[in-house]
Design a protein around this nucleic acid. Structure first.
Lengths: 206, 206
DNA sequence: TAGATTGTTAATCGATTAACAATC
DNA sequence: TAGATTGTTAATCGATTAACAATC
């Protein structure tokens, strides 16, 4: 199969969510690329191209069967499985991520929480015990967790990455300002909030 | 001037932050594109191209004067000014955004908070009074606020956008799942957390 | 059949990279 | 001067869009 571009992968999720939240439910059972695209601000032709990476999913003259498409997207993304995720950093941002309901709704569960603050360690946040960062390696191995969210301060990242290198994790969602590189085998997605806000300012500043 | 690509604008901010956080301070006063690029995981040639949109900023054979470059970037981005921002939605995510220190460090101040929850309205969060969403239009006009962060649930967005259309805002930072379009005059940056996590899952799921 | 809409190819647009002359 | 590094041009790569044949 041809390599699927990263922007396409992100949009797959948008299509999926749109179908999942669709209140009109089964009727009409078909939706065309025009309608679905418009809902998320995407040209119909781009939507069709995105979907075509995964084979014929629509019906010419009719559109896409909503339910079938939803199930197919669920499989493609991997949301038909349950995923366990570890969170490192139980500060304000970490807590907000924890209490972000939408993740759970999709079968994404944050089941391990770590921090280096002795005041937090041993307490519960959202029902889960905050563990000492020291045990990251050990716990991740034990539980076979593949995905880690880092929401600490930049200064703590180096030590954390050092630990993570010894694990089998496959992806990091990085909310810190640090640049993280664990080689080609570990996906790193950076969520740079300052950068987003900064780019907004820059665009207005003209 | 040639149009500056959006990815370039985002990176400008990274360069700026890197210089700002540079503890080695003044000495050495020059940094070359190789060194600076490596710190943020960007090829030196891309860094040079990015900067070249704004004229000659470096010295051949030497590199970039750190302090001069920092000041110049500050001007370009607009961080030499102070910016007032309104936050709509004082839930978990909203509160995390509020307490995210890094914004303040850059002269970005969230000075108005709105919510539609009567339990929250009238209380203070981070020292600022939570106001009723009803008054968005009025308050934004009065204070001349140009930037709005929306961190509500998707369902509340329609009403908010309806209000915002009657104001002079220039940019929206959208943390909800809703698709927002206020025409070409209003920049909308979407921070789609589910989509990011979803794309991570999809990449791992292969 | 006529109308609607997909799926795909080729064209276009935009961003990154490689190469290198200019020059400090 | 020799070495280092910028700034810029052309080449490449990648993603989006337009066009349209296929077909339900």
């Amino acid at each position: 199969m041809k390599k699927v571009p990263e922007p396409t992968i992100r949009r797959l999720f948008c299509y999926y969510r749109c179908l999942k939240n669709d209140k009109s439910d089964i009727i009409p059972d078909y939706v065309c690329s025009d309608t679905l695209g418009e809902k998320i601000g995407i040209k119909p032709t781009l939507l069709r191209r995105d979907l075509s990476f995964f084979g014929h999913m629509g019906r010419k003259g009719k559109g896409y069967n909503k339910n079938k498409l939803k199930i197919r997207l669920e499989e493609i993304i991997g949301l038909n499985k349950e995923w366990e995720i570890a969170l490192i950093g139980a500060g304000n941002l970490g807590k907000a991520i924890l209490s972000y309901n939408q993740f759970r709704e999709m079968g994404l569960y944050i089941t391990e929480i770590f921090d280096n603050d002795l005041d937090k360690i041993g307490r519960k946040v959202n029902g889960y015990l905050v563990k000492n960062v020291k045990f990251i390696k050990q716990v991740l191995q034990e539980k076979g967790i593949k995905i880690v969210i880092i929401a600490t301060s930049e200064d703590d990242v180096e030590g954390i990455v050092h630990q993570l290198k010894k694990t089998n994790i496959e992806a990091i969602w990085n909310f810190t300002t640090a640049h993280i590189d664990l080689g080609d085998d570990v996906i790193v997605v950076k969520e740079d909030l300052c950068c987003s806000l900064g780019s907004i300012i820059c665009n207005i500043n003209k």
